[in-house]
């Protein structure tokens, strides 16, 4: 049987972004194949989250090319951008759940907007998603009534609602205790296996990142300082990379 050609879902080239005098991204390039998980590592405030927001089109780069699912994001009009976004899930750092809606309504929201399924089917699918993240009994609660870790799980369920081909995670384990962080990491590994989705995970948590990522990218001062698997990073001679790996391990 012939091997299927790998599909490039993300192709970012020479992306630059500045905020005032601060250079946040300075020529970052990144490629991601279908089914692959890349962890984007770096210290806080090095532009990792900005890179994710550029990828989903929430921010525009000053220069460079951002191709997501084959579409150049910088040249799309709002309806075209919306079409691309339907195939990308996004888990925000603080989950960003809609606080006026219940948990079930949060997960149902993308389904209600972008699918024609009946209210009953929508609810069933939302409950399935909540079951996937182990939150099926919390559907009637409001986001303010659950913990940060639970909110991340709900955020993940919402990000998966439209069966995206690619999921972007912004600090999925930040602010969580080690056990909950481990559970979230396990969840990502599980979803990778069952849904065969590609993922870009922005994090500064190297320990967790090495569990679920196929490849790691270390960003510092807006540029990529190292790229490869955990072992590659460990053997890298760059003093910054050495220090980062040493301190994080």
């Amino acid at each position: 049987m012939a091997e299927q050609p790998t599909q490039t879902l993300v192709q970012i080239e020479e992306v630059r972004k500045t905020f005032g005098a601060q250079k946040v991204l300075d020529g970052v390039s990144l490629a991601l194949q279908a089914g692959e998980t890349v962890a984007v590592l770096g210290r806080s405030g090095t532009g990792k989250s900005v890179l994710l927001k550029i990828m989903i089109g929430l921010q525009q780069p000053d220069s460079g090319s951002v191709k997501m699912l084959g579409q150049e994001m910088t040249q799309l009009n709002p309806p075209q951008l919306a079409e691309v976004r339907k195939n990308i899930g996004f888990l925000f750092q603080h989950a960003a759940l809609y606080d006026s809606m219940t948990i079930l309504e949060n997960v149902e929201f993308p389904l209600a907007r972008h699918t024609d399924v009946s209210a009953q089917d929508r609810q069933r699918r939302a409950l399935d998603l909540l079951r996937t993240v182990g939150m099926e009994h919390e559907g009637d609660k409001l986001p303010s009534q659950i913990s940060g870790g639970m909110q991340k799980r709900i955020g993940l369920a919402r990000a998966l609602a439209l069966d995206p081909r690619l999921v972007l995670f912004d600090e999925p384990t930040a602010g969580l205790d080690p056990i909950t962080a481990g559970e979230i990491a396990e969840l990502i590994i599980e979803l990778k296996k069952t849904r065969h989705m590609a993922a870009v995970v922005v994090t500064h948590d190297l320990k967790t990142a090495k569990r679920f990522s196929d490849r790691m990218i270390l960003i510092d001062s807006g540029t990529i300082r190292a790229e490869g698997c955990f072992e590659d990073l460990k053997e890298n001679n760059d003093p910054f990379v050495k220090q980062f790996v040493q301190d994080a391990a």
Partner: peptide, 9 residues
């Protein structure tokens, strides 16, 4: 931002 990322204007 989450709403925009979910392709809702």
């Amino acid at each position: 931002d989450a709403m925009e990322a979910s392709a809702v204007d």
